[in-house]
């Protein structure tokens, strides 16, 4: 059952990701990306990481993608305004990124030990454990990420008030 769910979600996420890349209209690309995020959230749930799944939906699908759509709609970008590259360019870009993929897969394959979710504790992805781990083992990276976000927010406000004399 889990295997079938995994395969379904995997196929859906790959197909929607491809559709996102190949779609001519930017708004459709964003909508396909949202579907990809849903499929990935499903994978998180299969790994028993409900919190991560929901936060993934809230942050990516619920906020960031809305902003993407917002900008696309404000600027009224559609397939006519989308710049079209020549076939040579597309081919070059495809080969270059394909090579990067091969290199990455080759590099990661040997170096990371992937443990199956069955081995892990069933409650490992739940909020209690996640919070405890974040505030004990990973407290420094967590706080640094927090400061990074704060800096980004201040920067965004500053950019928004560009006309102000700084």
């Amino acid at each position: 059952m889990t295997l079938y769910l995994f395969l379904t979600l995997a196929v859906v996420s790959v197909i929607t990701a491809l559709l996102m890349v190949f779609s001519k209209s930017p708004v459709r690309s964003v909508l396909y990306l949202i579907l990809t995020f849903f499929a990935i959230a499903g994978q998180y749930i299969l790994l028993n990481a409900q919190f991560l799944a929901v936060v993934h939906i809230i942050v990516y699908a619920g906020a960031i993608m809305v902003l993407f759509l917002f900008v696309l709609m404000m600027l009224n970008l559609n397939s006519d305004t989308e710049p079209q590259k020549s076939t040579v360019w597309k081919l070059t870009a495809g080969i270059a990124s394909g090579l990067l993929l091969v290199t990455l897969v080759g590099a990661l394959r040997g170096s990371i030990q992937i443990s199956t979710p069955a081995e892990a504790n069933g409650r490992v992805g739940l909020v209690e454990n996640l919070g405890r781990v974040l505030f004990t083992d990973f407290v420094v990276p967590f706080e640094i990420a927090g400061i990074l976000f704060l800096a980004a927010m201040v920067g965004a406000v500053l950019v928004g008030k560009r006309d102000l004399q700084v």
Binding site: I34, F51, V54, V55, A61, G62, A63, V66, L69, L126
Partner: peptide, 17 residues
């Protein structure tokens, strides 16, 4: 589900689509 209130928030944020 043990994240019930976040589930509600998630679907609220999707309502805008």
């Amino acid at each position: 589900i043990n994240i019930g209130i976040l589930y509600v928030m998630g679907f609220t944020s999707l309502g805008v689509y």
